[in-house]
């Protein structure tokens, strides 16, 4: 069965950058956030790779990325993402970062997807279970609610389509185990963990083909204001502690024991 796969994905600052929370007018932000290079949120990226893989296995399927992000930043990020796999884009031009309200973000994404009026019988909505930008893990569930989709899977690592149209979904649970569920048919929302796929290599020819469609979509990005329904008392980086001691001829077991003791302190 060909699927209509819609992937929700926002931006995150490049993880190698220095990320320093600073107070903002309405909510905190990151220092120089707009000037920092961005990436497609790694959790959403996994979802996108899985979507493309699934689409490849089911000819006739389409993949659409719905992204709520500042348009200019998104354009730069697409210069890499668009080279990796074929997809279409629906851009929502709005400020969105790690301090955005998950409810408002979910609402904006859900409404945008609803406007596409996708046929429910083959709709799969993908996204990241978490986010590299202080994710709440709630956005995809809110999107599902907005779209009226009852089958929601969280922390997904694998989807396997069976004959007859049902599919198995592997979700991460406690203790490094997976829970396997069978879903009889779409629609469903899958919030992905890391999946099992490697990052596809860049392929400029794919990028060129994608961008011919993506650039006009980007130009037509809908301005989307994401409201804030919450306030932040403070935001700060986790404390880093560095204690250096130079020793010789210490066994691995001894080093491990010392680290464990240090952690307990």
């Amino acid at each position: 069965m060909p699927y209509q796969i819609i992937v929700c994905g926002g931006l995150a600052p490049d993880p190698l950058q220095t990320l320093e929370p600073v107070p903002g007018a309405a909510s905190p932000g990151l220092k120089n956030e707009m000037m920092l290079p961005g990436v497609l949120d790694p959790w959403a990226s996994h979802a996108l790779y899985e979507a493309a893989n699934l689409a490849k296995q089911h000819p006739g399927s389409t993949v659409r990325l719905v992204s709520l992000a500042p348009k200019a930043k998104l354009q730069q990020v697409l210069m890499t993402v668009a080279q990796k796999l074929p997809f279409e884009l629906m851009a929502l031009d709005g400020a969105n970062n790690g301090f955005s309200d998950a409810n408002e973000t979910g609402k904006a994404l859900g409404e945008a997807i609803a406007k596409l009026d996708p046929p429910m019988e083959n709709l799969l909505v993908f996204g990241g279970w978490e986010s590299a930008t202080r994710g709440s893990g709630a956005v995809m569930q809110i999107v599902a609610e907005r779209l009226g989709i009852a089958d929601v899977f969280l922390a997904v690592d694998e989807i396997k389509v069976e004959e007859g149209g049902s599919f198995l979904v592997k979700e991460r649970v406690e203790g490094g185990k997976h829970m396997v569920s069978r879903c009889s048919a779409p629609p469903a929302v899958l919030a992905w963990a890391t999946g099992n796929l490697a990052e596809p290599p860049n392929h400029p020819q794919t990028g060129m083909a994608n961008m011919r469609v993506i650039m006009p979509s980007l130009q037509k990005a809908t301005p989307t204001a994401v409201g804030s329904g919450m306030s932040f008392a403070s935001a700060s980086l986790p404390k880093q502690v560095r204690e250096t001691r130079i020793v010789k001829d210490t066994s691995a077991a001894e080093i491990a024991r010392e680290i464990a003791e240090w952690l307990k302190q």
Partner: peptide
């Protein structure tokens, strides 16, 4: 020139 911007990203990787 998005073709060139993509080339840059590809080569950089």
């Amino acid at each position: 020139r998005y073709d060139l911007a993509m080339l840059v990203q590809s080569v950089r990787a």
